[in-house]
Design a protein around this nucleic acid. Sequence first.
DNA 1: CGCGACCGTCCGCATTTCGTAAGGTTCGGA
DNA 2: TCCGAACCTTACGAAATGCGGACGGTCGCG
Lengths: 239, 239
Amino acid sequence: MEYPAVAPARRGELSDRRVLVVEDDPTVLEVASAYLESAGYLVEVATDGFAALEAVAARRPDLVVLDRMLPGIDGAEVCRRIRASSTVPVILLTAMSATEDRIDGLEAGADDYLAKPFSPRELVLRVQSILRRSVTELTPEAAIERGPFALDPAARIIRRDGRELALSVREFDLLAFLLKHPRQAFSREQLLHAVWHWDFGDLSTVTVTVRRVREKIEDDPTSPTTLVTVWGVGYRLDL
Amino acid sequence: MEYPAVAPARRGELSDRRVLVVEDDPTVLEVASAYLESAGYLVEVATDGFAALEAVAARRPDLVVLDRMLPGIDGAEVCRRIRASSTVPVILLTAMSATEDRIDGLEAGADDYLAKPFSPRELVLRVQSILRRSVTELTPEAAIERGPFALDPAARIIRRDGRELALSVREFDLLAFLLKHPRQAFSREQLLHAVWHWDFGDLSTVTVTVRRVREKIEDDPTSPTTLVTVWGVGYRLDL
DNA sequence: CGCGACCGTCCGCATTTCGTAAGGTTCGGA
DNA sequence: TCCGAACCTTACGAAATGCGGACGGTCGCG
């Protein structure tokens, strides 16, 4: 079996957490964003301190990756101002591993640090580690009600006509994704990427999981009316 | 005395927080108090274990800084007794940086520890870090009534259908947390962080405590209907 | 100093999950 | 009608997951 370049988010944590990356170096920004996205996060970016503060207020990310050295306001100062109005976890990227910076960072209220140059994998690991534990700071995902289906992401429950469906982790994640994007056709590759966070792999994995979901939501699984096949393309959820 | 170069408390946030410092060495006590006060905390002091226990009960501080070496009762022992009746965060001052002490401290229920001789700056930083982290849990806790359960955080009592449950400290903390966040699925790791205040550790600790709580709240603990398992994810309290 | 409560850890077992493969079926174009 | 590709169905088995039981260490109390 083949593995993606970065460890995928853990099961049950595939929810679309938003991470704000604040970095003025385009190269670093590009690399960090790519790795975080491939780990399943929605990445938003800002290239200076003011934009960062605006983004935190407006977009309410679940976590902030913040460069210590920024044009305009200093990173630690940005961190302090974020702290003045928010408890969002902050990972500070420091130029050196000097204790001076570390103390400043602690003082500014950062939750973790990473000395540059840093490994993008390690960044992903730290982000995952913090988000895995966080409970209260996370913005709760909104419940969705569409057609006969009701999705409660926090409880990890999907109901159909009020009855709770007995779904496994994969089945839940797949159906939840489709419920968030109804009436839209997705290829197997797209689903493998969006739900499994795999960059490559056996596409029949998707086929079989679709089959299993159908078994639980279709009145007649042999002729689906809700999770339909789009021939030559993939699948679509009709409501 | 030279005045500490620590960031002052932000207005409206850290003010009014009461920190109890338990330390028999007058010099250390003086220095620590000065730094904490200049950081905006209201500092109260105790010079031995008995006075500390009394102060915790009577003054209900928001955080306790506790020397490991005390005349009379041992610091770790004081910590344990505090834990028996309170969830107030405790920072333990250990004489040496030996891992031995650290383990003892964690076992006694301390939230953090600091090796002596310590930098007063760092002490302030740790205090800030912990109080910021638990700001929501420190706000005066209101009684909650949900379904058949009634939670009285101040008295540390949980009733079910009016009958008081005989819960141990850990069991109480876990059930209380779940009662505060009903119908929401939590991973073991989240629970370990939110209830145990551990950033690492054996996840089976959570599993076992869940089992013990089930024994006391479920009609049939072998097929739970209230504290249910979310397969591949964790646990959820349904009411 | 023994007894029980508490609590973290560990082990064996049962169950569930899920990727993979293999063979059958359907679809659409020529 | 024929054919290949796309899709479906089923089954298998390794791995993951959860659970009960038990053990040992610590602490409180008589």
